[in-house]
Amino acid sequence: MLNVKRLKRMFNNNQAGFHNINFSVDKGEIIGILGTSGCGKSTLLRVLSGLDPYYEGNISSSDEANNGVGMMFQEPRLLPWLSVRKNISFGLKKEERTSTKYQTYLDLVGLTGFENHYPKDLSGGMAQRTAIARALITEPEVLLLDEPFSALDAFTKMQLQDLLLSIWQKKKTTMLLVTHDIDEALYLCDRILILKGQPGEVFAEVQVERSKPRTRGDAYLSQQKAHILNLLNVEQKAAGELK
């Protein structure tokens, strides 16, 4: 449903960004984009979300509903002057904003009863739950997630990964997840694109052939993790630097 062809976005004298990116996403798929820092992962999402219009190449979508994209950032980015309820309803049309549509999504992310709290009174995990609800309420054709859990502690992170999976099971939302956490990518994604280089390009694609929900630390996943680490060349590089 989402097709990306020869996508290119470079800056800093072609030292940063990405080029020659081709991939397509099917409906209901969760695609992971994994890479070391500086390979253009976040830039790729900014281009796909429309925040960065200075790209070359082609992005096409076959979805007729045209609900646009939903985006979740590393930080919750809630509007501090709006209550949880109004933050969740933010992306809706004016008529719907005052309706009770938010309630479904409030319940979905497990924040029932917190609709009148302001963001300052929420913990990091709760704020990120609110952000998930806000991104989902407009029923976007693709949900773009830019390292959404990287600022959270390990336990909250796992809780929210499970929450994301349970939402996927209910709604079959198509997702594009940028992450630098290999375990997270292996736990959530159907396919993982590995970006490498500066500027980055797709270096490899890893299929995760296990049905979700998966068990963390599963032998197959560990094996895939070793494979990915090998692809990313992380271990050799670290060893090389030590010498």
Binding site: G50, G68, R77, L79, W81
Partner: peptide, 26 residues
Amino acid sequence: KLIEVGRIYQLTPFQLTKRIILPAAL
């Protein structure tokens, strides 16, 4: 970062001013 949230939802410059910039500048 907050202005980007508005741009994700394709707010017009007027809506962006009314719904994000003015409250944030209050």
